[in-house]
Write a protein that binds this DNA or RNA. Structure first.
Lengths: 207, 207
DNA sequence: GTGCAAAAGTAGACTAAGTGCAAGATAGCA
DNA sequence: TGCTATCTTGCACTTAGTCTACTTTTGCAC
């Protein structure tokens, strides 16, 4: 990696870090782009070269995950059902304490989560990531699981929204103060319950 | 209704109508708030007294529906499952050609749909309505169907996202030019399929 | 090391969304 | 007719985000 590239990565990280810590301390809309640029010691214009909008200063960290469900389904071993692959992958993410699951002890992760939840435009951006994940997952289901258009879209919608709900619940446990090792069994059980519900349907809930 | 109240309703409708027709004609971000205010013959400042943001000029029309699933579940006859009530209600909405189902012939409805789909911030607002609908539905399930916290949230997430997916699919058929009477059978079949999938689970899809 | 082209950063002016305030117009009511 | 509450308006202000032209820094050839 060249010096130029390393500097870009560094600058990008510095800007985002400055932004997030300011936002966490004072609130998203109490802090202006100009203040973030000053804190990161770059010009306002340079900041916009790295992040197209104020929201992106925060949510760019989650952008990588939007193709994850689709990748898992595409990469599953032959003979395994898409749902089983996603279930297994989610349990593994819990074991790895992947921050995306909400099962984490990192105080900065929890502050970040609180920031997201309390800031409408940030949540709006997160929901758009979900929509993108859904579209990509639907395509993967159509192409690798021989699923027709409508059922693929319906299934993708259900799966993505359920995973999102699980992660929110995990974050809420973490914010309530539960340590991740203590929360893990409940989180794994919740995941099992959620995937069982996806597989078996809501009629198991209300006979 | 007093003259004052009638005028307010009129003004509000006039502003929204002017906005939507301008947005449809020229695109959401090609039209400024100032132009909308001029077209509706009110001051810019008055416009903001009626609609807090530019997005609201369009999406306020959908704000009423965000408590609909919760209301349906709360108002269902004794002995009926929540899912059956929602299924029935959705089929009825299709029969009534409720624009929220996407099954409509109104050209202005279709233009509005195209506007929404092609405008990122408008879609973001719509997704937030879904989130609100989901929260309210989860509460209704907890309170009237004896459902625990987590399953209620999971079920609500699945149901809302599935209904949204159905309506998108219907709009797409309508945009493709299918008349609502011709599209109705397929739309009803799709709804049946979707609710069957919700009830029976994804394992019916991938055994 | 020196010079040069390309990439990155900066300054400053500009557009447009949204807010605060104070003054003017209008409906409701005595 | 006149008083009061509400609605409307004009104007100045803040901030996000863009455009253009200019300077600095980096990679590289010699």
């Amino acid at each position: 990696m060249s010096l130029r590239e390393r500097k870009k990565v560094q600058t990008r990280a510095a800007i985002s870090a400055a932004a997030i810590s300011l936002f966490i301390e004072h609130g998203f809309d109490q802090v202006s782009i100009t203040q973030v640029a000053e804190a990161a010691d770059v010009s306002r214009r340079t900041l916009f070269a790295y992040f197209p909008t104020k929201e992106d200063l925060v949510v760019h960290r989650f952008a990588d995950h939007e193709d994850e469900p689709a990748r898992v389904v595409r990469g599953r071993p032959a003979g395994q059902s898409p749902l089983a692959a996603l279930h297994e992958h989610y349990l593994d993410a819990l074991r790895r304490r992947d921050p995306a699951t909400g099962l984490t002890d990192g105080p900065e992760q929890l502050s970040l989560y609180r920031l997201l939840r309390s800031t409408t435009p940030l949540m709006a951006r997160m929901l758009q990531f979900n929509e993108s994940a859904e579209t990509q997952l639907a395509a993967a289901l159509r192409e690798t699981a021989d699923t027709a258009e409508l059922p693929a879209r319906l299934a993708a919608a259900q799966i993505v929204s359920v995973q999102w709900t699980l992660s929110i619940a995990n974050y809420e446990r973490a914010v309530a103060g539960t340590r991740s090792d203590d929360a893990y069994p409940a989180a794994a059980a919740a995941a099992d319950q959620a995937f069982a519900l996806l597989a078996g349907g809501l009629s198991t809930l209300w006979p």
